[in-house]
Computed example of a mutant assay.
Amino acid sequence: MGHCYSLDLRVRVADFVEAGHSCRAAAQHFAVSESFAIKLVRRARDTGSPAPARQGRPPGGGKLVAYEAFLIQTDA
């Protein structure tokens, strides 16, 4: 599984591109992949924030949801 770059780095890359540089130049300057820079700029443009998306399964779904009340009751 991949890792998330820090928000500080994400902001610096997005600002670098916003200042008029290309995504590929930003990738080379900050030693990140071109793919990361391109996707980051797209994400910042679409959502207004370069912050990473939440990862993992959304809460409330899973195999044991139907048995949640029973499990809580037997735990006590």
Score class of each variant (00 low, 15 high):
C23G: 04
L9N: 02
F70C: 11
R57V: 14
R43F: 06
G60P: 06
A51K: 05
V13R: 00
G56S: 01
P58L: 05
A14F: 04
V17F: 00
L7W: 07
G61H: 15
A31T: 08
L71D: 14
A44P: 06
S33C: 05
I38N: 04
P59E: 11
R12E: 07
Q55T: 11
C4W: 09
D46T: 08
C23P: 03
S33Y: 04
V32W: 03
V17L: 01
F30W: 02
A14H: 06
A19Y: 07
A37S: 03
H21M: 02
F16I: 00
F70N: 12
P59C: 05
A53G: 15
F70G: 14
V11M: 10
G62L: 00
A26N: 03
S33H: 07
L9G: 03
R24G: 04
Q28G: 12
Q28F: 10
D8G: 11
E18A: 13
D8W: 10
R57I: 14
V11K: 13
L9E: 01
Q28C: 12
A44Q: 02
A51Y: 00
C23Q: 08
S6G: 02
A31K: 10
F36S: 02
P50I: 01
R57H: 11
A37R: 00
A31V: 08
A14V: 05
L9M: 04
P50Y: 02
L9D: 04
Y5H: 04
I38A: 03
M1G: 14
S22A: 07
P59K: 12
V11G: 09
A37M: 01
R43P: 05
H21Q: 06
D75T: 14
H29Y: 11
R42M: 06
R57S: 14
S33R: 03
E68L: 11
E68R: 13
A26S: 01
F36Q: 04
V17N: 02
K39E: 11
P52V: 03
Q73V: 10
V65I: 09
R42I: 06
A25D: 15
H29K: 09
L7I: 07
L40T: 01
V11Y: 09
E68K: 10
I72H: 15
P52H: 04
A51I: 01
E34K: 09
L71R: 15
I72K: 15
A25L: 11
V65F: 07
Y67C: 12
P50W: 02
V41L: 07
E68N: 12
G61K: 15
F16V: 00
R12T: 05
R43V: 02
